[in-house]
Amino acid sequence: MAEKTAPADKVFPFLDKFLKVPPTERSRVKLSYAIRQDGQMMPNLKATLVEKSGARTPLPINAEGYFDRLPTLAQLQGDATLILDVPADMKLGTAMNFGTQLKPAAEYDARELTATVNEANTVIGKAAGPMSFMAPKMTGIVFPKAEGGTIVFADGHTAPLPEAKDVPFFRPADHQGAVRVKLTKTPTKVGFYDGKK
Rank of each mutant, 00 (worst) to 15 (best):
M1K: 15
A2D: 14
E3Q: 12
D9G: 00
K10Y: 14
K10M: 13
F14K: 08
D16T: 06
K20I: 02
P22F: 03
E25K: 14
S27D: 13
S27L: 04
S27T: 13
R28N: 03
V29K: 02
K30F: 10
L31V: 12
A34H: 09
I35Y: 13
I35Q: 09
I35M: 14
I35T: 14
R36E: 15
M41S: 05
M41D: 08
L45R: 01
L45F: 08
L45D: 02
K46S: 14
A47T: 09
A47E: 04
T48W: 04
V50F: 11
R56P: 08
T57Q: 07
P58V: 10
P58G: 05
P60I: 08
N62V: 02
G65I: 04
R69V: 15
P71F: 05
P71T: 05
T72M: 04
L76I: 01
Q77W: 00
G78A: 13
G78Y: 13
D79C: 11
D79V: 00
A80F: 08
T81V: 14
L82A: 08
I83W: 13
D85G: 11
P87Y: 14
M90C: 11
K91D: 10
L92D: 00
L92P: 01
A95Q: 08
M96C: 03
N97I: 03
F98L: 01
Q101K: 13
Q101P: 12
K103I: 03
K103W: 03
P104S: 07
A105G: 09
A106W: 12
A106N: 15
A106G: 15
A106S: 15
Y108V: 06
D109P: 07
R111T: 10
T114H: 09
A115V: 06
A115Y: 13
A115E: 09
T116R: 07
T122V: 15
V123N: 04
I124M: 15
I124E: 15
G125Y: 08
M131E: 10
M134H: 11
M134C: 08
K137R: 12
T139P: 01
G140C: 02
K145E: 02
G148I: 02
G148A: 00
G149Q: 00
V152H: 09
V152G: 04
V152K: 06
F153R: 02
D155G: 04
G156W: 10
H157Y: 11
H157W: 12
A159S: 11
K165A: 14
R171F: 02
A173Q: 11
A178P: 07
V181C: 07
V181P: 01
K182F: 00
K182N: 11
K189A: 12
K189R: 12
V190K: 01
G195R: 04
K196S: 09
K197F: 00
